[in-house]
Nucleic acid binder design. Structure first.
Length: 280
DNA sequence: TCGCAGGTGGTCG
DNA sequence: CGACCACCTGCG
């Protein structure tokens, strides 16, 4: 266990465009939350960090200065969002409206193994429960990362070798349901074969089908052309583009045709757009 | 009570 | 190959 005692450090870097609420709530991550004072707290890259944002400047607390590079990369600082947004806005009026609503979205560069676990858990599941599962799994089997605002010790997700050595019964308390078996088998496959490096290698893992593979490829392998089609995307593609909801391959090929290499960004804007405008 | 939630694996035809 | 369908869990 690494000690972060007496290491209460912070760093600042600029990011434009950026909106933490939009970025953390567009479906890509599960371990960031808004605190009552309006700041954000997250567990990522092996640390518990708090984030404040104003006037284009991010202030990150709980991170040593020498990790600045790592964290600006996590927030995708090297990508020109103005250019991407400009290019996408020329495609059609639907994506243009979505770009307005989610003007501060960025696609985080998350750790691969974390995205694998997270999106296997996400299948046939809802967001509050996904978050709960990830917390219980971390707390029970991960490594301590630090204290959060309430003084609770937060942990990383367990490494592949740790999960590989478990049996589904060991994970009963995490309440993953049938996904516990998927996770353990997947961890064993990763321990044997190494981490996946392509969508095809992802699809060869237990618990990873087309949708989950696209999410992991997009968020964990940083393949920005992937366009994950989940129920929300089906909904928005039907409502706004008139495509049949049950034809996933039709939606995929439409997206590829329309958005090309920028499919991943388009998906995030559309996902956020439909969630924001969801007539509950 | 029952369907549904950010799907997938297994089994049929 | 494509169409079904069971599946843990928790909530409305």
């Amino acid at each position: 266990m690494k000690s972060i005692q007496g290491n209460i450090m912070s760093m600042e870097f600029s990011l434009k465009p950026f909106d933490p609420g939009q970025t953390f709530c567009c479906g890509q991550c599960f371990r960031w939350e808004r605190l009552p004072d309006g700041s954000w707290e997250g567990v990522a890259l092996g640390r518990v960090v708090s984030l404040e944002f104003s006037r284009g400047e991010i202030t990150l607390s709980g991170v040593p200065a020498e990790e600045e590079q790592r964290w600006s990369q996590y927030f995708d600082a090297g990508t020109d969002y103005e250019k991407i947004r400009e290019e996408l806005s020329e495609k059609d009026s639907v994506i243009k409206a979505a770009l307005e609503t989610g003007s501060g979205i960025r696609i985080l560069r998350q750790e691969l193994w974390e995205t694998i676990i997270s999106f296997i858990i996400s299948q046939n599941n809802n967001i509050p429960r996904i978050r709960g599962c990830i917390e219980r799994l971390s707390e029970g089997f991960g490594e301590p990362c630090g204290e959060d605002h309430s003084g609770r010790i937060r942990c990383s997700l367990p490494a592949p070798e740790v999960l590989a050595a478990l049996e589904p019964e060991d994970l009963a308390g995490v309440r993953l349901g049938y996904r516990a078996g998927y996770l353990i088998r997947c961890a064993r496959e990763v321990t044997e074969r190494g981490l996946p490096r392509s969508r095809d290698e992802l699809l060869a893992l237990t618990g990873v089908g087309p949708k989950v593979a696209d999410c992991i490829a997009l968020f964990g392998l940083h393949d920005r052309s992937r366009f994950p089609v989940d129920v929300w995307v089906k909904r928005v593609m039907n409502r706004l583009y008139g495509l049949p909801e049950d034809d996933v391959s039709g939606i995929r090929s439409f997206a590829e045709e329309r958005f090309g290499d920028l499919g991943g960004y388009a998906q995030q804007y559309l996902f956020y757009y439909v969630r924001e405008t969801a007539a509950k």
